[in-house]
Computed example of a mutant assay.
Amino acid sequence: MTAPEDTTRLGYFLGPHGVQGGVKVYVLGDPAQLLDLPRVWVEGRGWLRVRRAESVPPGVALHLAGVTTREGAEALRDLNVFAADSDLPELEEGSYYYHELRGLPVLGADGARLGEVRDVTDGGHQDLLVVTHERGEDFVPLQAPYVVVQSGETGRPAAIALTEDAPGGLLGEGAEEAR
């Protein structure tokens, strides 16, 4: 079962929290984004109503409809958790959700279009942009100082720009010479 379109992966379940079906979530990003969600989409289970969410630093514990025992929560361990993009809370200006980066052009320091963001993924120590380009697909660290998220007129993300400090070879340049 694949996550529906217009959803964003929020993290994955770690395991039970308490004995009444609470389940801890490893959150990608800000845990506060989960606290007021009316529902989540759970890999292999579909949409589940959120009965209650509580902050359990460094993450969140969710209490979901139909999950009322520790064993039920244990069955969710390692499953991915998604939210409908429309259910996510509004962000302050200058902040963005990763789903807003999908489909954005990736520009070089000279402003030339190099590719397009297909997705953003958790790379462990840092988040990675999955960028498609004429030579294929590559991961680009979403990291200052060489990646800048440019805002448009509405204040929302409009493009990803690589700065002059970006290391060479990020988008497959030089791959032919390495063979």
Rank of each mutant, 00 (worst) to 15 (best):
M1S: 09
D6Q: 10
R9H: 03
F13R: 07
L14N: 10
L14I: 13
L14C: 06
G15I: 07
P16Q: 12
P16M: 08
G18S: 11
G18C: 11
V19K: 13
V23H: 02
V23E: 00
K24G: 02
V25G: 05
V25E: 00
V27G: 07
V27A: 04
D30W: 14
D30N: 15
D30R: 15
P31G: 05
P31A: 06
P31E: 06
A32C: 09
A32S: 15
L35K: 06
D36I: 00
V40N: 00
V40C: 01
V40E: 00
W41C: 00
V42K: 00
R45F: 10
W47M: 01
L48D: 03
L48G: 02
L48W: 03
A53V: 05
V56N: 03
V56M: 04
G59T: 06
G59S: 03
L62W: 01
G66V: 14
G66L: 09
V67L: 06
T69P: 11
E71C: 01
G72S: 05
E74D: 14
L76W: 05
D78G: 01
D78C: 02
D78R: 15
L79H: 13
A83V: 01
A84Q: 11
S86M: 05
D87A: 00
D87S: 00
L88G: 05
P89C: 11
E90P: 15
E92W: 08
G94V: 12
G94W: 06
G94N: 10
S95C: 13
Y97C: 02
Y97W: 10
H99W: 15
H99P: 10
E100L: 06
R102M: 10
G103V: 02
G103S: 10
L104H: 12
P105G: 06
P105N: 09
V106D: 05
V106G: 05
L107C: 14
L107T: 15
G108T: 14
G111L: 12
R113D: 09
L114T: 15
G115D: 06
V120K: 07
T121K: 11
T121G: 06
D122V: 14
G124S: 12
G124D: 12
G124C: 11
H125R: 14
H125K: 13
Q126A: 11
D127T: 12
V130H: 11
V131R: 04
T132V: 14
G136P: 13
G136V: 11
E137T: 15
D138G: 09
D138F: 03
F139S: 14
A144T: 13
A144V: 08
V147I: 06
V149S: 02
Q150N: 09
Q150D: 13
S151E: 11
T154I: 04
G155Q: 03
G155Y: 03
R156D: 08
P157V: 10
A161S: 14
L162S: 05
T163I: 02
T163G: 09
P167E: 01
P167A: 02
E173P: 09
E173C: 04
G174I: 07
G174H: 09
E176G: 02
A178G: 02
A178N: 06
R179G: 05
